[in-house]
Amino acid sequence: MKTDGRQLMSYAIRAEGLVRRFGETTALAGVDLGVRAGTVFGLLGPNGAGKTTAVRVLATLLRPDAGTATVAGYDVFRQAHQVRQVIGLTGQYASVDETLTGTENLLLIGRLLGYSRGDARARARQLLAEFHLSDAADRAAKTYSGGMRRRLDLAASLVGRPRVLFLDEPTTGLDPRSRTELWGIVRDLVGSGVTVLLTTQYLEEADQLADEIAVIDHGRVIAQGTSEELKAKVGGQALVVRPADPGDLAMVVGVLREVAGAEPELNQHTATVPVSGGDVLPAVVRRLEDADVTIAELALRGASLDEVFLSLTGHRAEDGTELAEVPA
């Protein structure tokens, strides 16, 4: 991994050459990461790309087959106990005990972390208020909505006041309103000094939250930078084409695929493809004119992170199959 002259301790998370295999499957194939303190770092990729495996290694839940990593300056292998004292982890699905109330869930975690009963109860009240769950504090978690459970789960990961928080696809299954609420909570946490490593397959989520993004596919980091830097890598523009006759859409797709060198995205009767050269638009126009295809809409616009991902990987972020992982 290249360095940029910053002091090592300015990074809350560093990983070099992480490799992890599960039988014949290589989940991580030499992952390098550098997450600056007090930022949101987005780890973006489809299911099965290696995101969750990377989080489990950094959170000391899995040992890698090769490579090194530190979290908050502690080696995740030799100093696992110290790492666990400074991190919080929220997985893809709420892990709260549904038979306990909101207060009881947080009180239990506080006691497990060594808080006195009074301190644990005070911390539970504080977090329930911060996460707008005070009115439901004495209700069993099984009566909570999906968004409420995710907020309670996130509150549980913060009982110990972690310096580094791992959020592994935290908004999976949430409705847009609940997702937006959780985004606000993440921004507030970072504003208070917490470092967040966020894994997600939602491109909008990465675009909204992450100061820096790494795109991971088949266990490798294939691109890294800010959202705008990644967009610039694929030219920063997308070509939108809608034929007057929907029956000509297949022809449009074929022309875009050949000229732009990427698989177009289809939306109703419109095809969109990322473009990186100024000669693509006139070439497409000429090809379609030669094929007697009449165009109802033709436009260049700024590329989205979705199109960046498509250009980098050849498939959409939501595509892919979960890797079958086994306990270490």
Rank of each mutant, 00 (worst) to 15 (best):
A303R: 03
K2E: 11
L312H: 04
A141S: 11
A260W: 02
V40P: 01
G67I: 06
G173T: 15
A324F: 10
L300I: 15
A260N: 03
G34Q: 07
A232W: 13
H269A: 07
Y144A: 01
L158R: 02
T103Y: 01
F131H: 04
I13C: 02
A232Q: 09
E104C: 14
G235M: 09
L300K: 02
A120G: 09
R242A: 11
E265G: 05
T180W: 12
R286V: 15
L256F: 01
F166D: 10
A59W: 08
D153E: 07
A250T: 01
M251G: 11
L133W: 01
N105W: 03
E318G: 11
E228C: 12
V253H: 04
V76Q: 08
D75S: 10
R257W: 05
S178I: 12
I109W: 01
L182K: 03
A283M: 10
V326Y: 03
A69V: 06
K231P: 07
G91A: 07
D217T: 06
H269Q: 12
V259L: 11
A260T: 06
Q79Y: 13
L239I: 12
V190Y: 14
V285A: 05
R84K: 09
A129K: 04
T25Q: 08
V19C: 10
P170K: 03
F77Y: 15
E289H: 08
V234Q: 00
F22K: 05
A69C: 09
P170V: 11
Q268L: 11
A156H: 05
A214N: 10
V255F: 01
Q126R: 07
V190I: 10
G73T: 13
F131C: 03
T226P: 12
V71S: 01
E104H: 10
L108S: 12
T143N: 10
M251C: 13
L239Y: 06
Y11C: 01
